[in-house]
Amino acid sequence: MVKHSVLIGACLMLLACSNATQPNLYQRLGAEDGINAMVDGLLYEIEHDQRIVHHFADSDIGRFHAKLAEQLCQLTGGPCHYSGSTMQESHTGFNISLADYDALVEGLIKVMQRQQISITDQNALLALLAPMYKDISYR
């Protein structure tokens, strides 16, 4: 058993080394299609979440979709350049609370689970998004 594990481990290590270009998070999330599906899913969650849907009442959903997809693409190492306003600018006046932020993160987790994104990739994305709280909340 141990021998087998060592052998499998060695093979995996060889594979890892031979594969010079490891897929980055953007690719692991399914690149453009994957990100778009994730944003679609998140919009669905927002639409059905009474806690936060009111914040989006006056939003241009098409623009929101495009900018969020672009931002996620850039953030995860994809070939995009986020062209929207800063997080502080775009959330000023909304007074996004901790509960709102929690609700959105919970929505995102639901979407990632539904899209069967691995737990390690989910955590990698959450690690990138969680620190945005200080720029988004209570403005």
Binding site: T120, D121, N123
Partner: peptide, 9 residues
Amino acid sequence: LFNQVAGRN
């Protein structure tokens, strides 16, 4: 801490 040990929190 997100994504720390074997990708786990």
